[in-house]
Amino acid sequence: MKTLKSLVIIAGATLAFLFSCSSSTTVGAVRPVKDRKPAPDFTLKDASGANVRLSDYRGKVVLLNFWATWCGPCKMEIPWFIEFQQQFKDQGFTVLGVAMDDEGWEAVKPYVTERKVNYRVLLGDDAVSTRYGGVDSLPTTFVIDQQGRIASAHVGLIGKNEYLGEIQTLLGIKQNVSARLVPGAVDVYAASANQ
């Protein structure tokens, strides 16, 4: 009886912890250098058919974003990434989009053209997804440092300013205080979804 009571208490405590965690998962902000693991390398094709290797971007900060055209939260982030690409492309930064659409370029190309995406978009596959832990949920985004190590990982929609802060930290740019005062878009998104 005592054992059963203990089990119930432990189960209750575990559930309480789980429900106190957000459903989106953010693994750290920018991890300390000693805790960063190498980003698994891959080669994927871009819209022109050219092979693109992640390790070719060594020396740059890379925002690696797994997304799909059918994913609403992903579409919220894309305008931010376009803005980051424009703002930081000359400072050693790039965005790489990995589209996980089963329909391939037939679905992805029109969307990328329509939205005037200014960064490289690659077509993902299961092998790359597996290397990055399965990527069952989208968006999933990794911010990779200049040495090719994963500095942060985010599953689900987070705020624009969180990405901005991480990029600026890795680029060694002093953070813009006024930019950080803008409300997180994730709150706007969650509120509208609950309407």
Binding site: S23, A68, S137
Partner: peptide
């Protein structure tokens, strides 16, 4: 089917 919540979508 394809499911989402307010923060993420699952693959179809």
């Amino acid at each position: 089917y394809q499911a989402c919540n307010s923060e993420m979508c699952l693959r179809p």
